[in-house]
């Protein structure tokens, strides 16, 4: 028997209504195993945060429409409500943000906030909950944790607050941790500390992690697998090694080149021309086509097929489809 996937997106579509319609997620399918760390990579507006918000059921109900399904441990979470929804949010899934201010309440001490959450979701007493809080602060390696329990968020440095937020998010031992750019606002020397901490805690707790970032280097440091998003869909997914060392989608290749890692000083960069689409309409062709150096008529005649290249490496591009003429492909620059 195969294990139930931790997360399974099936043809997910998310649309925002209002003054203007935004097709934020457009038929996203993806499955993620228990205990896996998935790096969700993509540029501004590609739909990374909306994907996480859908998972946490944080989208504005009146202004958003969801199609398709999202299963977490086998349960479709798009239809949860009431007690089932709060149990799901408290025990199954938890989130860390870029800004600790979004998660930490300025008027309560760190210790009280963690203890309160644990009491609510685990139904244990205050004393035991404080012990959990102390244990969590120790695990995220906050120096003198006993003293820090009594600190208010504003009494801590940026890196320390980020650690406290991670402690809060993990206190109820979620099976899935969602991290939305949690290190983007941090200094370089602090960022790497937090990345390595998350990697260690993931191993220790055996939880699954979806880590959203637009920084390829950060994704490489934390992820087992990487999914690359463009215009509300995943264009390429695979093991971190496959995606970084053997990128197949033209957008992934462009993104890797634009990272400037190993770029020669002064030499012209292979910049992808143009900018991402506005998402006002549901795409009916490859969304990347207007910027793609390899675009051809097939790319505009329908959504590009998803091709499985083996080992879970898959790509949504006509060039990779087996039906595509091999001879013309050889002429392409790689």
């Amino acid at each position: 028997m195969t294990e139930t996937p931790l997360v399974e997106f099936n043809a997910l579509k998310v649309r925002f209504k209002g003054e203007r319609t935004v097709h934020a997620i457009n038929g996203l399918s993806l499955s993620m195993q228990q205990g896996e760390t998935l790096g969700l990579l993509g540029e501004s507006g590609s739909g990374k945060s909306v994907t996480l918000k859908t998972l946490l059921r944080l989208l504005p109900p009146r202004r958003s429409e969801i199609e398709g399904s999202v299963r977490v441990n086998g349960t479709d979470i798009t239809t949860l409500s009431g007690r089932a929804l709060s149990a799901y949010r408290g025990r199954e899934v938890s989130m860390v943000f870029q800004e600790p201010a979004l998660a930490l309440d300025p008027v309560y001490t760190i210790g009280d906030q963690i203890a309160e959450t644990v009491m609510r979701h685990k139904g244990i007493g205050r004393h035991a909950a404080m012990d959990v809080a102390l244990d969590m602060l120790t695990r995220v390696r906050i120096p003198s944790p006993e003293r820090r329990l009594k600190n208010y968020p504003h009494e801590m440095s940026g890196g320390m607050r980020q650690r406290a937020m991670i402690a809060l998010a993990l206190a109820c031992r979620p099976k899935l941790l969602l991290a939305d750019e949690p290190t983007t606002a941090l200094d370089a020397t602090v960022q790497i500390q937090i990345l390595l901490l998350l990697r260690e805690l993931q191993r220790e707790f055996g939880m699954g992690v979806i880590f959203v970032t637009h920084d390829i280097g950060v994704a490489v440091e934390v992820s087992d697998r990487i999914a690359v998003m463009y215009a509300g869909n995943i264009v390429e997914t695979g093991t971190t090694r496959d995606v970084i060392k053997n990128p197949r989608h033209p957008y992934t290749r462009g993104l890797l080149a634009a990272n400037l890692h190993g770029a020669v000083k002064g030499e012209r960069l292979d910049a992808i021309p143009g900018s991402p689409p506005a998402l006002e309409e549901l795409p009916s062709a490859c969304s990347f086509a207007p910027r793609c150096a390899f675009a051809r008529p097939q790319c505009l005649s329908g959504l590009p097929p998803v091709t499985d290249l083996g080992d879970g490496h898959s790509v949504a591009c006509v060039l990779e489809h087996p039906a595509f003429d091999e001879r013309s492909r050889e002429a392409l620059p790689v």
Partner: peptide, 9 residues
């Protein structure tokens, strides 16, 4: 964004 940054550089 990275792809736009390369254009500006």
């Amino acid at each position: 964004d990275k792809s736009v940054e390369a254009q500006v550089l």
